[in-house]
Design a protein around this nucleic acid. Structure first.
Lengths: 132, 132
DNA sequence: CGGAATCCAAAGGGATACTG
DNA sequence: CAGTATCCCTTTGGATTCCG
């Protein structure tokens, strides 16, 4: 198995994966990343590991069902690790994997953008609604 | 009206907007940005303005209804501009606004991440499914 | 060509009850 | 505490038709 440079790996990925193709696996992955709760959960885990209930409190508005579902998919995709402490009652902690942590700055950047450009978007909406 | 430094504006936004609050307007904006098609449409418009039909072809798999709906919301939020040429048949072009262009690198980064980490995610899924 | 409008099936997601 | 399972309402979104 020949060694590849980083540039060669990028080129190989570029040929094999393309989010603009409807059936490409990376498109499905992008859909997961675009999930309503995925970004918030990942950023909530930035400071370190959190228990299920702490996570539920951090991400306001998420239902227990949606949080469980989101965490399962993140765990399956290798972005989050789950650790169970078999005490009574049971204690479950979640933390980012290295892969999940590599995604963190991107998700945080989008959230920052939303917070910092809210005023301009609001102004644009009022303008649009007035015109129509 | 006193002049604010960029740092002061950031601090004001930080106090007023927080995506982790369920009812915060920025949370709704984040939900829009997390839409399945928003990122793809914005990145498709990166090279320059595109007609409706060109956009539909660039973003494979999007239906005409979804593309229209996505473009309307982007236009309303001030991220995309719509230009109508009243010829027969009519010609409609879309292009990013400055605000939309400021979001472009963030969306592109997430898509790049999806394409470049697909293998690791696939491996994680196989591992997870084998274990369960 | 670039939509708007309607219909309808499928998926999303909340509330509740129950369990180890 | 941290889920799973079920019910059921709401939203999403594709297919189709029609229009300027």
């Amino acid at each position: 198995m020949p060694t590849m440079t980083a540039a060669e790996r990028r080129e190989r990925d570029r040929q094999e994966f393309n989010v603009f193709l409807a059936t490409c696996p990376s498109r499905q992955l992008l859909d997961r990343l675009s999930d309503k709760w995925v970004g918030l959960v990942i950023c909530a885990l930035q400071p370190g590991s959190l228990r299920f209930s702490e996570l539920a409190r951090a991400v306001a508005g998420v239902s227990q069902k949606m949080l469980t579902q989101t965490l399962r998919s993140l765990e399956r995709d290798g972005l989050v690790e789950r650790e169970v402490t078999p005490s009574v009652p049971v204690r479950v902690d979640y933390r980012l994997t290295d892969l999940g942590r590599s995604l963190l700055p991107l998700m945080a950047a989008v959230q920052d953008w939303a917070e910092h450009h809210m005023r301009e978007v609001t102004a644009a909406r009022e303008e649009y609604d007035r015109a129509s």
